[in-house]
Design a binder for these strands. Structure first.
Length: 275
DNA sequence: CCTTGAACCTGCGGGC
DNA sequence: TGCCCGCAGGTTCAAG
């Protein structure tokens, strides 16, 4: 499910219910996600207060009272559900915590590309998942100048580069296509050919599309629901993603949305509007 | 270094 | 109905 907007939506949902609560019990049902669960995780979580929940790129970071951080990555198909009362038993309910006020949070992940780790706060930024991540796209340090410099000596096309978490962290397959469409830039354009003006425009559209998606509660495709069970609805605003064969929303009937494969992922664009 | 492609795993929808 | 194929929001590792 999750690119930055979806993860941000998850974080916002979890905050309301979990921040300030004490973990009364935790269960690891199936430990073999992409990264094996840390040994003794359930026991280590028991009794800790969830002080603050944050996001870095596509990672959920639950800061705990003993100076530790519970890191959650949702992979491709992960979701977090919240509830009260009976603990969920589903086949893909791999990890559950229950708080002292009777709420539970459950990580479900059919494809098991997700990961959970528990790390000391002091070691957070050097954790293998987080070290080397580029700037947050919604922060000020992601700007046209920085992007232009970052692209200057890259060889390949812009679209896979936008998804490179070392360049800028949090953009995935949906929002890369959407941001490029809004900036009228072809996904095939060589990175080094983008002018500073185009980089500024692209930074603007990346920020705009991510902010708009967060505002809409993220995109609900196959798996993604918000922790409260509500659906995000940004998928109804896709201009190009998964719109192959549809009329381009900008030039209308004059061109249809194309699907191509780049670095093994689908890209969607309008050949007429994006140069 | 940099880039691409395959691999990880399950589920769903389409075509036959 | 059932089977086979392609496809899916991410990351990482090997190979070129």
């Amino acid at each position: 499910m999750p690119e930055l907007p979806e993860v941000e939506t998850v974080v916002q949902g979890l905050r309301k219910v979990l921040e300030g609560a004490v973990i009364e019990q935790a269960w690891v049902r199936r430990p073999d996600l992409r990264l094996p669960f840390p040994k003794g995780l359930a026991g280590k979580l028991k009794g800790q207060t969830i002080e603050r929940i944050a996001r870095r790129a596509k990672y959920v970071l639950c800061h705990l009272s003993k100076g530790q951080v519970l890191l959650i990555h949702l992979g491709m198909s992960g979701r977090v559900k919240l509830g009260k009362g009976a603990i969920p038993e589903g086949k893909h309910a791999h990890f559950v915590i229950r708080t002292d006020d009777g709420n539970w949070a459950c990580l479900e992940d059919p494809r098991r590309f997700g990961a959970v780790d528990l790390i000391d706060q002091a070691l957070l930024s050097s954790h293998p998942f987080l070290a080397g991540l580029g700037p947050e796209p919604l922060e000020k340090d992601f700007d046209g100048k920085m992007l232009h410099k970052g692209l200057a000596r890259r060889k390949g096309p812009i679209k896979p580069a936008l998804m490179d978490q070392k360049l800028v962290a949090g953009i995935g397959n949906i929002y890369a296509s959407e941001a490029l469409f809004r900036a009228f830039i072809s996904p095939l354009r060589p990175c080094s050919s983008l002018t500073l003006t185009e980089c500024k425009a692209l930074v603007r559209t990346v920020k705009d599309v991510l902010a708009a998606a967060i505002e809409s509660g993220g995109s609900s495709l196959r798996d993604h629901v918000r922790p409260d069970g509500e659906l995000g609805y940004f998928q109804h605003h896709f201009a190009v993603y998964a719109q192959e064969g549809e009329a381009c929303p900008r030039c209308r009937a004059k061109a249809r949305i194309l699907r191509i494969v780049q670095a093994g992922r689908s890209s969607f664009y309008c050949k007429r509007c994006q140069r």
